[in-house]
Write a protein that binds this DNA or RNA. Structure first.
Lengths: 144, 144
DNA sequence: ATTAAAAAGTTGTATATACAACTTCCAAAG
DNA sequence: CTTTGGAAGTTGTATATACAACTTTTTAAT
C-alpha cells in the first residue's frame, strides 16, 4: 500500500533524538531538579527565586520590563508576582513599579548560601565546558 | 546596625545573572516559544511531541522507561500519557507497555515537516556554535 | 502457592507557563 | 479638557511539572 511505503521512508530518515526542543526540555528539568532540592527549605521555587534576584538588584521595574528580563509571558509573570505578593516578599505598593520587601531581601540573604551550593553542584555536573556552552547558548538566544 | 552591614556586603558580591537555573529556564522558554508556533495547528504540545517521537521509534517501553528517557517524573509522565490516550494517539492496551496508535503515527508523519521548520528556525538562531554547545550540555547532564 | 517487600503506576495538590480575551491606564490628538 | 487608541496589566482556561501519598502489580523468599 502506497501510504505505508511513504511512512517507512519518512521514519527511517527521522531522527527525533536530534530535537532541540526535546534536548532543552530535558536539560531544563534536570537542572531544575538540582536547584529545587536546595530551595525546598525556603518554600520558594526556582522561578520565584529568579524574580526575587532581579528585584534585589533593581527597584524600578514594572511588569512589562520584568517579563522581558525573565523571558516570561506577561500573564505568567503576573501570577508569579502575585504569589510573591501573597508571601509578602514583594509589594505592588508603588504600582506599577514592583519592589522587593524587607522580608524578601532577608529571604534572598538566607537563600544565597544554598543557592551557592546548588551552583557548585551544577558547575561540577556541567564542568568548565558545560558552563561555557551555556553562555554560548544564552548569547545566541539573547541577541535581538 | 550590624545586620545591614552584612546585607550590604553580601549583595555587592552577589551576581544573580550568573544563575544557571535562571539561564536554563530562559533558554527553555525561548526555545519552547519557537516550537509551539509550529505545533499549534496540530493541537499538540512540545512535551507530547517528544513522547510521540520516542514511541515512534520504540514500541516496547513502559512508563518507568519512558520517564527516564524523557527525564520526566513518573506522575508527570503518567498524566502526559493520559492526555495522549484521550486523544487516541497512544494506547495502554498492551499495559504496562505503551504503544503509539496508527492515528498517532499518522500525526507524527504530518508533524515532521513542521518540526523540520522549527528545527531550521532554531538552528539559525543558535548557529553552529549554539548547536554544538547544546550537545556539550546534553552530554554533561546525561552522564551517569 | 502464599505472602511480604519493592517497584510501578495513579491521584491529590500546588506552582509554572502560555494564549486569548478582557479591563485598566496613559498618552497623544483634537 | 475630552476622547480615543494602544500599552500594560489581569483573568479564564488548559497543559506541564513535581512531590507526597496512595493503589496496584511484580518479584522474591519461604
Amino acid at each position: 500500500m502506497y501510504l505505508s511505503v511513504v511512512n517507512t521512508i519518512d521514519l527511517n530518515t527521522f531522527h527525533p533524538q536530534q530535537c532541540i526542543s526535546g534536548k532543552v526540555m530535558r536539560l531544563n528539568r534536570k537542572i531544575a531538579n538540582i536547584f529545587r532540592q536546595y530551595l525546598r527549605p525556603f518554600g520558594i521555587t526556582d522561578s520565584q527565586m529568579s524574580l526575587l534576584f532581579i528585584l534585589t538588584k533593581r527597584d524600578d521595574l514594572n511588569q512589562k520590563q520584568l517579563s522581558e528580563m525573565a523571558a516570561l509571558e506577561k500573564s505568567s509573570l503576573n501570577r508569579n508576582l502575585n504569589r510573591l505578593v501573597d508571601a509578602r516578599l514583594i509589594t505592588k505598593e508603588h504600582f506599577p513599579t514592583i519592589r522587593i520587601t524587607k522580608k524578601g531581601l532577608q529571604l534572598v540573604q538566607q537563600i544565597i548560601p544554598e543557592w551557592n551550593k546548588a551552583m557548585d553542584e551544577t558547575r561540577e555536573l556541567l564542568d568548565k565546558e558545560g558552563m561555557a556552552a551555556l553562555d554560548v547558548l544564552m548569547t545566541k538566544v539573547s541577541q535581538k
